[in-house]
Write a protein that binds this DNA or RNA. Structure first.
Lengths: 210, 210
DNA sequence: TGAATGACGAATTGACAAACTCGTCACTTG
DNA sequence: CAAGTGACGAGTTTGTCAATTCGTCATTCA
């Protein structure tokens, strides 16, 4: 049942998706998202999703390879939306070192908020981390890209040191963020993320300043 | 069944432990440790432990409140031994900033080693983290103390900055180590801990240097 | 009196069958 | 032929009941 990244796609080839196919995918994802938010991923059956958009389960498999693929898509969208929002916010903060602090706090806050107010979605994300779906990888890449832009900016303005290789710095910073957006950790250890995030953010900032 | 820290002790009061009682506790822990190492915590019954030291299960409960209490004690000892070893090593490294790097690498290595070569023990430790036993708390305190001594030394030799409050720095550094000794995380995400640990160690070092 | 235990209730685990879910394929329909 | 489906096998989850295991207590023994 567990599918690796190496599994070949069985759904129709992406290149042949017409606009109406895209709409179908969208409808599927919206239905899935709603059901998962209410009942959780586990208790959402493919039949449930099919029923709400008035299609047979068999036909759904023309648009997604598996139930997991639907879950991954829902999850990817959620994480991607978060990263977009973070990106927006960061662009409006002029000071790079303030950006760093903001990023840590944002991750901690959004993480806790999801845990408190949207538990079923949290569970989905936790599962995606736990089972190494593609969504966390995509999320990491997006976060890394945001960090890179901030750190680059800091180096250009002369606020940040320039001796350490840029990529090394960025990756290291991203590692330190991992504790603050990690559903699996959170559900096992609901400590005071906010305060910890601030302290680590300040530490990271000190390591960046020159 | 789940006992919180608030639960009152049912085993005999600690103040009344005679040396021979201590020996009994030791025997119990050694038997438990051996069984757990072979069969895992779950499959180790209190009867198993009692049998190997030729006592009844009922009598064991004079020395430990519960099976979990035995597990915690075993776990505490394991973690404490690791911290002692780390402390020893760190004392023999003169440069504080080398100490920092060493600590991160030690944690990552020992973590992986336990996962690879002593899986059943790893599972026990993972459970202790997962269920918030007292052992991780004790471990954290010991690690924090080691970090404090190193950072203090670095500040005294003028190698490390002295503006940030000592406690804040120490706690922040400890947070960043959490990713590298965390059985729960490891079993879900067997990434390349060693390299990550090095990169984060260097970042932390940069934040400490003045 | 202190060391130690057998026997026992409550709670947990394991085993196994029934019900359900996933995903495929041949087939219908317009 | 494109859009869509019912029916089905493989594999998984759920429910149930018996067997274990945990932890307590009254009791024995030296």
């Amino acid at each position: 049942m567990k599918t690796d990244g190496t599994a070949r796609s069985k759904a129709r080839d992406i290149s042949s998706w017409s606009p109406s196919d895209q709409a179908r995918r969208d409808a599927i994802l919206r239905a899935a998202s709603a059901h998962v938010r209410h009942y959780g991923y586990q208790k959402t059956t493919v039949a449930d999703i099919a029923k709400t958009i008035h299609l047979s389960t068999a036909y759904l498999y023309n648009f997604f390879d598996s139930k997991q693929a639907i879950g991954e898509a829902v999850c990817t969208r959620i994480l991607s939306d978060l990263m977009s929002e973070l990106d927006q916010s960061v662009r409006q903060i002029t000071s790079p070192s303030e950006c760093i602090v903001f990023i840590f706090q944002y991750l901690a806050e959004v993480s806790i908020k999801m845990f408190r107010d949207d538990r079923k979605i949290h569970d989905l994300v936790a599962r995606s981390f736990h089972e190494h779906w593609t969504s966390p990888t995509a999320y990491n890449a997006e976060l890394l890209s945001i960090l890179k832009s901030v750190i680059l900016r800091g180096r250009e303005t002369g606020e940040f040191e320039r001796k350490t290789p840029l990529d090394e710095t960025c990756e290291a910073v991203r590692y330190t963020t991992e504790t603050f957006f990690h559903p699996v950790l959170l559900e096992q250890n609901p400590r005071n993320l906010i305060d910890e995030a601030l302290m680590v953010a300040l530490l990271v900032r000190r390591s960046l300043l020159c």
